[in-house]
Amino acid sequence: MTEIDIDTLRQSAAEACGLLKVLANPDRLLLLCQLAQGEYCVSDLANATGITQPTLSQQLTVLRHAGLVATRREGKQVYYSIVSEQAMEVMQVLYRLYCQQEPDVKAVPATEATDL
């Protein structure tokens, strides 16, 4: 078994915490879930998610400043896409755990799962 470099581990843990802090918001998760499907302009994101314009702009700014998404301007339209490979991988795991449900499989609510 190889020994773990604690300084490297500490730095990686700090980076992971930063990503998780940005993801710890329902609106940002919803936006990233939508953006995981491809590039979207702001108006399409608003229509797809139901997030109001002020909140949408605020959350997209947070995602952009965190380096998770990038913008591309085409005329008057601003398009957003995910550029963080780590964020994309986390979104894929979250999608698999929370959004995909196989037919005939009933998910156990979290309150019931603790009683198992």
Rank of each mutant, 00 (worst) to 15 (best):
T2H: 10
E3A: 15
E3D: 12
I4Q: 14
D5K: 09
I6D: 07
I6V: 13
D7M: 09
T8L: 11
T8M: 07
T8G: 06
L9E: 14
R10H: 09
R10T: 12
Q11G: 03
A16P: 02
G18T: 08
G18S: 12
G18I: 00
L19D: 03
L20F: 14
L20G: 01
V22F: 04
V22H: 07
L23F: 14
L23E: 03
A24H: 10
A24D: 14
P26E: 15
P26W: 06
P26A: 12
D27G: 01
R28N: 04
R28P: 03
R28K: 06
L29I: 02
L30H: 06
L32C: 05
Q34H: 04
L35S: 04
L35R: 09
L35W: 05
A36D: 03
A36G: 01
A36N: 07
A36Q: 02
G38L: 02
E39Q: 14
S43R: 05
S43H: 05
D44T: 02
D44Q: 06
A46T: 03
A48W: 00
A48G: 03
T49I: 07
T49R: 02
I51W: 09
T52F: 01
Q53P: 01
Q53E: 10
T55N: 13
T55K: 12
L56W: 08
L56H: 05
S57H: 13
S57K: 12
S57A: 10
S57V: 05
Q59K: 15
Q59R: 15
T61I: 01
L63E: 10
L63Q: 07
R64Y: 11
H65A: 04
H65R: 11
A66G: 09
V69M: 08
V69A: 02
V69W: 05
T71H: 01
T71K: 12
R73F: 01
G75I: 05
K76Y: 11
Q77W: 01
Q77V: 00
V78E: 05
V78T: 15
V78L: 11
Y79Q: 00
Y79L: 01
Y80H: 14
S81G: 06
S81M: 08
I82L: 15
V83R: 10
S84N: 08
E85H: 12
E85K: 08
A87S: 14
E89M: 11
V90I: 15
M91G: 00
M91C: 13
L94R: 05
Y95D: 10
Y95H: 11
R96P: 00
R96F: 06
R96T: 08
L97D: 12
L97Q: 12
Y98F: 15
C99G: 07
Q100G: 00
Q100V: 15
Q100S: 03
Q100R: 08
Q101A: 04
P103T: 05
D104T: 03
D104S: 09
D104M: 06
V105Q: 13
V105R: 09
K106D: 08
A107N: 03
A107P: 06
A107F: 02
V108P: 01
A110F: 15
T114M: 09
L116A: 11
L116R: 12
